[in-house]
């Protein structure tokens, strides 16, 4: 039962978990923007503190947050490396052709901090929101795009169907793999290219089966009176509650403080 929870949702009962997914989406976007708004160390300290408070409120253990960082550690080191060694400015250290400048170190640290906060901020959203809620939030939150003929409902429906079918397809892939192995297929040995080639007899039946399923599902949906998003109701429609308005208030306050900090620390 490895695939029963998708994404990286961490189940807990916290204020953050109970927030409307739309609020969390807006929160994440505004937070990311704010990271590029501020430039001084104070701004980052403030943003970091703010995130720390939110993490605390979310009851998600810190090691879960750090796990998200593991994936980008290479990117982090990579940008830091280039920033340190390839920046022009006041030289602080020189050895042979290697020069390290004060500006270089500053940029490297700034970029690293930004990236860390950005990753942690956005993974906090996926950690506290179930994929279903996220889809609902996207569908409703982006509803205004309908004016521009963006098929918001259809995209939302596709996302939730994809979520529903991922575990089924994973199971099916496992079954096909076993069937192929039973007939002597080798998925484990050889180099990258050989392994990739070995995947072909796995992928083709998987695709064929997926198309067949899609056809069945479309019929089942039609049989249950599905006729597009118009006139549909929802069992649990998203509704803003008091908590959500408070959260928006906090967000505005945060943004205002960030701008003030930016102006004050600039001079």
């Amino acid at each position: 039962m490895r695939y029963t929870t998708l994404g990286q949702y961490y189940d807990a009962d916290s204020v953050i978990h109970r927030l409307d997914p739309r609020v969390k989406l807006v929160f994440t976007i505004v937070y990311i923007v704010s990271l590029y708004l501020g430039n001084s160390p104070f701004c980052y300290i403030f943003a970091g503190l703010f995130l720390a408070v939110v993490i605390r409120l979310s009851k998600v253990p810190v090691r879960y947050m750090l796990r998200g960082l593991k994936a980008v550690i290479f990117l982090l080191l990579f940008t830091a490396f280039f920033n340190i060694f390839l920046s022009q400015g006041d030289v602080v250290f020189q050895w042979g052709f290697i020069t390290i400048t004060r500006q270089g170190i500053e940029t490297a640290v700034r970029m690293a901090v930004r990236l860390v906060l950005l990753i942690m901020g956005s993974s906090l959203m996926t950690l506290t929101t179930t994929p279903n809620d996220l889809t609902d939030g996207l569908e409703k939150g982006l509803g205004f795009l309908k004016v521009f003929h963006v098929p918001v409902h259809e995209i939302g429906m596709m996302m939730s169907i994809a979520l529903r079918f991922i575990p089924i397809l994973v199971e099916e892939a496992g079954r096909i793999m076993m069937a192929q192995k039973a007939r002597g297929a080798d998925f484990d040995s050889g180099g990258l290219i050989k392994k990739a080639k070995a995947m072909i007899p796995l992928l083709i039946p998987l695709f064929v089966a997926a198309f067949r399923r899609a056809n069945d599902l479309a019929q089942a949906m039609e049989a249950r009176c599905y006729h597009g998003g118009n006139g549909r109701t929802k069992l649990h429609p998203l509704k803003y509650r008091r908590l959500d308005f408070i959260a928006y208030g906090v967000l505005l306050l945060y943004l205002a403080l960030m701008i003030v900090l930016k102006i004050v620390t600039k001079s």
């Binding site: 169907i161 529903r164 249950r224 109701t233």
Partner: peptide
């Protein structure tokens, strides 16, 4: 033929439509 990710969601799919 199951569309929802939770049982109650799936049962609600028809009447929602």
């Amino acid at each position: 033929q199951i569309i929802g990710n939770v049982v109650e969601e799936d049962v609600a799919f028809g009447p929602e439509n």
